[in-house]
């Protein structure tokens, strides 16, 4: 097993945290997220010397998202989406509120089909354009738009209430 090159280690150190958050949104579970991230990086590592170093994060993100979609196709994890979600929290003074918020969002996003989930994460967490999202998912822009539309429709009413937004900017940059 050859050793990691310094630039690969630097990349993992610099971009790992953000990619891990993306993986968490895709999987809804911290252990699966780490597993997914390591899977993607292990796929990329043998090609690292060759990969264009201009935008390695975009390349790894693409591998990450597509690995998740293929995971989902290959193995059923036993998760079943629920029509009714727990009542979202309305108070945020609780120290566990971050955990609760994460659970509610994870549950709602995880209830989406994998492609819709990927579209939501890429467009609204990674801030990719419709065209960039289509390129990552190897589909048309029309598909991205329709998947976005369906995902938003599915999420309506299932995500936390407006109280979260009132102090939402407080945690930006954390």
């Amino acid at each position: 097993m050859r050793d990691a090159t310094p630039d690969f280690e630097e990349f993992v150190a610099a971009c790992g945290p953000k990619l891990l958050r993306t993986a968490w949104l895709l999987t809804g579970d911290p252990h699966q997220a780490e597993d997914l991230l390591q899977t993607a990086l292990a796929k990329v590592w043998p090609k690292w010397d060759w990969i264009s170093i201009e935008r390695p994060e975009a390349y790894v993100r693409k591998v990450l998202v597509n690995s998740h979609v293929s995971w989902w196709r290959r193995r059923w994890t036993g998760e079943l989406p629920h029509g009714e979600l727990p009542e979202p929290p309305v108070q945020r003074a609780d120290p566990f509120e971050d955990v609760v918020l994460s659970q509610v969002v994870a549950t709602a996003v995880r209830a989406l089909p994998p492609r819709q989930r990927a579209v939501v994460v890429l467009r609204f967490f990674e801030d990719l354009s419709v065209e960039e999202t289509a390129e990552v998912l190897r589909c048309t822009t029309g598909t991205v738009k329709s998947q976005t539309h369906r995902a938003l429709a599915a999420l309506r009413g299932k995500l936390p209430v407006r109280e979260l937004m009132l102090d939402g900017g407080r945690r930006d940059g954390n």
Binding site: P30, V104, A106, F124, G168
Partner: peptide, 13 residues
């Protein structure tokens, strides 16, 4: 709003 919510919800693991 969804953008903000996802940023809030995704934990720093």
């Amino acid at each position: 709003e969804l953008r903000i919510l996802l940023q809030q919800a995704a934990p720093h693991l």
